[in-house]
Design a protein around this nucleic acid. Structure first.
Lengths: 130, 130
DNA sequence: TTATAAACGCAACAATGTTGCATAATTGTA
DNA sequence: TACAATTATGCAACATTGTTGCGTTTATAA
């Protein structure tokens, strides 16, 4: 069994993700850690936090991987069945929107693991500015 | 108004996408055009085909952008409301699965443009092999 | 306090996507 | 059919994102 260590860098990264309202990319997170560690370390910390199920990985509509805390989704298997991600095309921010249970209609010969539901558009913040 | 040209490279790329059963990445498409053109040209052709609404862009769960023909989704706005993408974690292939109308529950201050519904798991082909 | 395995930094690499610019090719029109 | 206009291409160079190997540092259990 691997021993999990709680390093300063790891704590800092996790705090940043938790405090932020929108999901963040590695680039954004690294910009906020203030050179407390190397950018490779950020990648490795994110990888570990995902494995420990403290954060989850969401792909933005442009292909950039984002990370968000696993607050409301503590169920095993890490399924996102009632979870929706809004991807703003203006500010590029990815926001979690809960309470979206959906019914799928997938042939039984497919083995489903995770459900990713992402909606693109313009978020309230960006709609204000004309 | 821009004049749309139908070049050999563009026709070839479009044919490849149409004939393939699964969505394809730029890398896969470029591998199939047999050096008929540069890889940058493939990127630009894909960009144009998306703008002309002949193909659409789907992000795989690993962040790689894939392209699929717009066969069954001819409605304006390019919305994918009744369209689902299955992303196989084994063979990495992205398959379109139709007939999946979903109801969303998004606050009215969000302006929705497109809906991306992607399910990861194991596809029938990969399930056969034990 | 120390041994040990986890975590890190650095350098180098790999994959994917973008941009600028000179050249080639397609298409409407004369 | 030839020409002009402008779209499309090739090439080189760059940017971003993510990965790997390896020697060194550090957190934690004992």
């Amino acid at each position: 069994m691997a021993i999990i260590r709680n390093t300063i860098a790891k704590k800092t990264v996790f705090e940043i993700i938790q405090l932020n309202k929108t999901a963040m990319s590695q680039t954004e997170i690294f910009a906020m850690v203030n050179n407390i560690c190397d950018r490779v370390t950020v990648y490795r910390i994110l990888e570990r936090l995902v494995k420990e199920m403290k954060i989850h990985k969401i792909v933005n509509v442009n292909g950039v991987i984002n990370y968000a805390p696993c607050n409301s989704c503590e169920h095993e298997q890490h399924l996102h069945h009632d979870h929706l991600h809004f991807s703003c095309t203006t500010c590029k921010k990815l926001t979690c929107i809960a309470d979206n249970h959906i019914e799928l209609n997938i042939p039984s010969n497919y083995q489903v693991a995770e459900v990713f539901l992402t909606v693109s558009g313009i978020c309230p913040n960006c709609l204000i500015i004309p």
